[in-house]
Amino acid sequence: MDTFVLVLLVLGGCALLSWPLGRCMRWAMDPGDDSGHRRRALEGWFARSAGASGRSQGWKRYALDLLTFNALLFVLSFACLALQQHLPLNPDGKGALEGSLIFNTAASFTTNTNLQHYSGEVSLSYLSQLGLMWLQFVSAGTGLAALAAIARGLAGRRDMGVFLVDLQRATFLVLLPAAALVATLFALGGVPMTLSGAAQATTLEGVQQLIARGPVAAFVAIKQLGTNGGGYFGPNSTHPFENPGFWTHLLSLVSILVLPMASVWMAGRIVGRMRHAAVLFAVMLVFLLAKVGTAVAFEAEPTRAFAELPAVEQVDGNLEGKELRFGAAAGSGPLWAVLTTCTSNGSVGAMHDSLNPMTGLMPMLGMWLNATFGGVGVGMINMWIYVILAVFVAGMMVGRTPEYLNRRIGTREMQLAILTVLAHGLLVLVGTALFAATTWGQGTLNNPGPHGFSEILYEFSSASANNGSGFEGLGDNTVPWNVATGLVMLLNRYLPILLPLAIAGSMAAKRPSVTSAGTLSVQDATFGVMLAATILILGALTFFPAAALGPIAEHLLHHP
């Protein structure tokens, strides 16, 4: 299939699907007082399950409940991984994992990152895989719950909801039904779904071969829908059991994008500003199209890796590291690479290390900006931070007091917004500098020069953006890598949730102002352009020097 048609099918299809889905998600996450009898009964059950914390919460209580629940997730997943050799559902006798790898994996799946420094089929028991799958539901639910709470705060509601109730709404009413549907489609498409141990096969040469399998369809469905990205198998979605062919490939691409897109509409409905949501959606879509277009264009050039091989004729772009089962030759790989990094998903449909340098820059750009739809729930939260900064800058430019959704933006909100943006940049750049300058990073590289630098930069970008994809070519299962990326994942999962929660709480406590002719409109194209410029300038100021040392330098080396 032609790349253009594939892009149109996936992006257009997701955009169309996201509208009704956003309405459903609003119904699920913020039902209002006029719900029917059955829904009220369900809400009563959710509130009872939430126990003592079933009463309405301000931002502080909400944030503390969110942190407590996630700390508990971390401990449980840590225990499950550390004790897997003693626990049931281990038909292939998987042994104990090394301590720092357990830390990294527990942090990774608790934070919705799914950075994997191991191969699931080699290292993990079925119970560990199922435990990680559970985390893929509740970590995505955490993001969606946080978005609902922040939207309520920005809408001026001091009662920001109840975290444990929101989490149940997100898990049982959004993620579980969607995952059941997609898992069934994956199973019909040939993805295994079994608790039997590895299959034994006799090859044509008479050799016995063990073929890993398991509850893969269920795992892959929530992996994509929850913008988790962690593969059941090491090769992720390039493995024929995770992604057998073109139709499962298409289903995966749609599953990656559809909930982050719908999150924008859900948030717009909760704050009651659908035209504003449409502007944000349009800005995100333009960025996404620009990144996909750039990646596909640069990938049309043959790879330099085969340039010296006279027998290799490259007529269809860079085919190194691509799976031709998925069709679209070189175009399918960059499309997946951009979608999976823009949405904080991190599943892999082509080898990112093999992308041409400037193509490889696009996934990094997706993770640096982290708001081109972004992760389920959290992508929209990130976009709101950019919106607050854009409104403030626009207010300063025209000499008016900055206001957003009829609430004045003050010093405190700006300090918290700046802290949120700085945290991401600091964690990526300081980590990269440290590992590029020491043997912690240098000793684990597979490539010298700018490409090696890109491998380090990508790994920290992926950890900090809670993406989880790997550039690979990096021996990353070492104690320094496991500890550093584990800490980065934990810090930059919760800082961009806690700080915006505090902003929303602070805005909700303010007296609403009256809209006048002097109020900056946030629902027209002018604001969209202002927002896009703010994102670009902030992104460039923070990350351009690092990009220049990595992918841009590598590109210029090949094109003197």
Partner: peptide
């Protein structure tokens, strides 16, 4: 013992995030 140290490292990170939340809440109250 090795794994326990890593578990403590994770819990210490969560403790720092708890502390940050309380500091932010105090800043708001002031």
């Amino acid at each position: 013992v090795n794994a326990l140290l890593y578990l403590l490292l994770g819990l210490a990170t969560f403790a720092a995030l708890f502390a940050l939340t309380l500091v932010l809440a105090r800043g708001e109250a002031e």
